[in-house]
Write a protein that binds this DNA or RNA. Structure first.
Lengths: 330, 330
DNA sequence: CGTTGTTATGTTATCGATAACATATTCACG
DNA sequence: CGTGAATATGTTATCGATAACATAACAACG
């Protein structure tokens, strides 16, 4: 069933039906009701594929996150989806699995759908990605970090500074032998930025670096056991373990408990991200709070605004900030 | 840039370019290389919006899950996405926020995109939803439960039977006063099915029902504290608390610990779903294991198969089963 | 060497909506 | 009451690809 079929039933032209479905179009109130009634009665569903081709507006905004299965990114995606929906846009979501090549491939796939905007989680990008997006001439937002050489808009925070702040505060609390537990193969990623923050903090404090990496991206709760063992094998003296994320910290705390070590009595543990797990953990996990939902909302906002004003000129640069949150574990 | 532009450069017709991009089309090898080279050089990106209109194949499969922010559903979504990608299909994901009205609205929105298949997480559906989908004449898969009156295909398991099995096994282990902690306002949902399973088990065992509900869907780790208090206020005698999900069980264990109660010494706790949290929790949580990823894979498989054979006649009915998994907490 | 079949390519029409333009109708105001 | 503005609706062309059909080139075979 097409618009013209509905039009025939009502006794108007297809164009009038199209107008009746657009909120701002000028249609006589009586006509609009008649059309809408007919649509409801017939169960007509407009074909947005055709509409998109004709109007050159797909109504899509594409977003790529590293993983659907990570509360941080899914929160961001959820609030992004909400914000877009308010503006009548639909989210086209993909996940890169933390792989740059997959990201490039996905960008290609997504661009075929003619999205009106694109949102990327910054973890470094393949050179091709950048070229493709520049050519697409749509607003691009990089999220979840402040990239050194951003293209397009940015909504994030400095993973490096945030981690640095955390380590400095831990040192101020009296910890002297602070170790770091991160992920392997993390060049260019947010995890690497956090590690860099740790390094800059210990350098500033005149402390030696004590860095260990476990497992592939992303570190999970289950990695805590091995990570702890590995770290302790090399630096048994550490009095505080800073982890690249809360789930990993939770896993480390479990490993401590299993060894009869008290946290933070024998060894302190800190995480990053303020995941729910850190709040309900016992002890509750000292961490850096990040407003994942706000990243989604704000990046959606930027895309919507950019589309309204169609000014691709000025790129916003939003630092949503972070907050070191001391809890029981350190 | 359009196909005809590429065609002009290569010196062929647009149709030949189109064919060169289709794996199975008959094009001379030399022509194909020439076309692909030109496409790479020009950075041409095919317009799938136009392609979809013309070929009447959108390349989309829509899926609705209750929440992106739930490891179960995001796992399902991830493996579904993978399976679809293998078949050259793209996942169009939406989340209902556990609201039937929102689901109906989303189904309407999604259908405008002419998806080739639709996957719904069963939590009961608005009557409209069913009507819309029947009219759409596309394969539909209901997942995550075995609905009493399914339409379309089904990939799931009996939430009710699974919970019944768990309670019976707990009784066999010697627990005599088994309570249940679920969600409020859960009519028609998977949670309600689990509660029904509990009721049928205790009825069978000749035990009284001890049911409490906390918070809105879905129950979270943070609900554990209040849930435990509420249950204990009414049935202080319980020796085992069965929860609608692992995260809630984890929260309950935390509440016990805070009160100095040992689990399972003073009170046993069981969950449902086999989330990662249950595995790393101390004590590890007794639960019902569900293969969330397999639900995604299998439902994607069904859609892909249905599209290949274009036989909408026979509806598959896949019970992926569950496994009671006894661990330390009960 | 002519007929038939296969492979490679071109041409035309079409998918279903909407932008852009054209026209009819109504209304306000001097 | 006539002119111009505002409102309501219709008509035509178009978005960019691909299906369907048409045709050209060439190979195989008796």
């Amino acid at each position: 069933m097409r618009m013209s079929d509905v039009a025939k039933v009502v006794g108007v032209s297809a164009m009038t039906v199209s107008r009746a479905l657009k909120a701002d179009a000028s249609v006589a109130p009586a006509t609009r009701t008649a059309v809408l009634e007919a649509i409801a009665k017939l169960g007509y569903v407009p074909d947005q594929v055709a509409g998109a081709l004709s109007s050159r507006r797909s109504g899509f905004v594409a977003a790529l996150i590293p993983s659907l299965n990570n509360p941080h990114f899914s929160l961001t995606a959820q609030s992004l989806s909400d914000r877009l929906q308010d503006a009548g846009l639909q989210l086209l979501l993909g996940y890169t699995n933390y792989e740059r090549e997959r990201e490039a491939e996905l960008v290609r796939t997504m661009l075929r759908r003619k999205p009106e905007g694109m949102i990327l989680t910054h973890d470094g990008h393949a050179p091709e990605t950048r070229a493709l997006l520049t050519k697409a001439r749509i607003p691009v937002v990089q999220i979840w970090d402040l990239p050194p050489a951003p293209f397009g808009h940015v909504v994030g925070f400095s993973n490096s500074n945030a981690m640095r702040d955390l380590v400095l505060e831990l040192a101020a609390k009296g910890y002297r032998k602070i170790g770091y537990l991160g992920e392997t193969d993390d060049e260019g990623t947010r995890g690497a930025a956090r590690r860099a923050g740790y390094r800059s903090a210990v350098a500033e404090l005149g402390m030696p670096e004590r860095i260990t990496a476990i497992g592939a991206l992303p570190a999970t709760m289950s990695d805590g056991e091995k990570g702890f063992a590995q770290l302790m094998a090399v630096w048994p003296e550490v009095d505080c373990i800073v982890c690249v994320s809360d789930p990993l910290a939770f896993g480390v705390i479990g490993a401590c408990r299993r060894r009869g070590l008290s946290v933070p009595g024998d060894v302190a543990v800190a995480g990053f991200g303020d995941f729910e797990i850190g709040r309900v953990s016992q002890p509750a996990i000292t961490t850096v709070a990040v407003d994942a939902a706000e990243i989604g909302r704000a990046s959606g906002e930027i895309v919507v605004r950019a589309l309204e004003s169609s000014s691709l000129i000025d790129n916003s640069h939003v630092d949503i900030g972070t907050r070191v949150t001391m809890r029981e574990s350190a």
